[in-house]
Design a protein around this nucleic acid. Structure first.
Lengths: 197, 197
DNA sequence: TAAACATAATAAACAATGTTCAAATAATTA
DNA sequence: TAATTATTTGAACATTGTTTATTATGTTTA
């Protein structure tokens, strides 16, 4: 990478950081060509020298956020016991992350697919987001006797759908209204799906 | 209701119908003050004589759509057998409705709560949408022996969350890509939750 | 009937948004 | 230093939601 590329990459980073800050704070409603550029310290027109459009910039954040979520989940979940228990812990941490940053949930799950245009990579990161977080544990679960791979596949799908549905209703429809109640309900549903008691 | 009120109600109806048509066709992206007014046959400014703003108008559609969904589900689901079977059938029909009209899913579940402003009624219709559709069957289920009310409550929550999560991923993230596969997966998850085999 | 009034519909105007492009500025090179 | 290249930017345009003053229409009253 030559000097020019290094410098370009730096400027791109300023815009990316600005976008991430706004998303974590105000969410998508705070994002505009002008607000991002101001936060980055450039004119709004400069943005178009480094990114195709504002969507392009927003969806480039997906990768970084998935990384951040992964790290957050690791700090939250305890030391290894049964894989199912670990999956339950990680999934709950996953939920708590999005409850803290609703703007990132919005970006991951509530933006329309058509806005992604040709950002197939970001799309796939999101689709597999939770599964990737628990990848190791699902594999370990698979090795343990008594559950067929098909059943595990089914559990993983069910878990993903339930978690996303719960978050959607809580973050977008205020149901349940109370955070603690939300977490309690989430624990209960996760445990049911994973057959933990 | 005097003549004036009747006529006002009629004009409101024209705008409402226009909005519903656009939502069923193009979805929220097709909605604008100008497009709705054009479809209704009025100037865009006229809209503000009858509705607070464009959001007001859009959220007034919720009630009508919930009614329409309810009727659709009734035509789709067969004659009564076990309540659980009926719930499964109705839930699948519910899913199929939204798969046909993604714009209405968008309106029901993907719009931000803050946009609802003071439209608490629309909000509650949505929150209880699926539960209302299957209300009778859940009650019948409750009367059948062998399942506690608490367990039923839990099943209802789990079903709601899973269904919404599935629809979100299919309609917003194209996962699974294929409609038939989506329906098959939905059936499987619904049956698991309702303990049907 | 004609003037005064009330109501309904609208056009004009404004602010905020995304985007493009030519001009201005900064950096590099001969 | 002058010329060239690269980067940054302001001006401009289209589209959006919303407000407000004006027009058009119908009704009431002197």
């Amino acid at each position: 990478m030559n000097n020019k590329e290094i410098q370009e990459e730096r400027v791109r980073g300023y815009f990316l950081d600005a976008t991430k800050n706004i998303l974590k704070g105000e969410g998508l409603k705070g994002i505009s060509v002008r607000s991002v550029a101001q936060e980055a310290g450039y004119s709004f027109a400069t943005l178009y020298n480094y990114f195709k459009d504002i969507n392009d910039l927003v969806f480039l954040c997906v990768k970084d956020f998935q990384q951040e979520i992964s790290e957050f989940v690791d700090t939250q979940s305890g030391k290894a016991r049964k894989p199912e228990t670990k999956i339950a812990e990680k999934t709950l941490a996953y939920i708590k992350y999005f409850a803290e940053y609703p703007g990132i949930f919005e970006l991951f799950y509530l933006t329309k697919a058509v806005d992604f245009n040709h950002k197939k990579e970001s799309m796939e990161i999101i689709t597999n987001s939770l599964d990737m977080i628990c990848e190791k544990e699902w594999k370990a679960f698979d090795k343990g006797k008594g559950v067929t791979p098909k059943e595990i596949d089914h559990m993983r799908n069910l878990l993903r759908h339930t978690v996303i549905g719960m978050m959607l209703l809580y973050l977008n429809r205020r149901q349940p209204e109370d955070y603690l109640e939300f977490v309690k309900e989430a624990e209960k549903e996760i445990n049911t799906i994973l057959k933990l008691h």
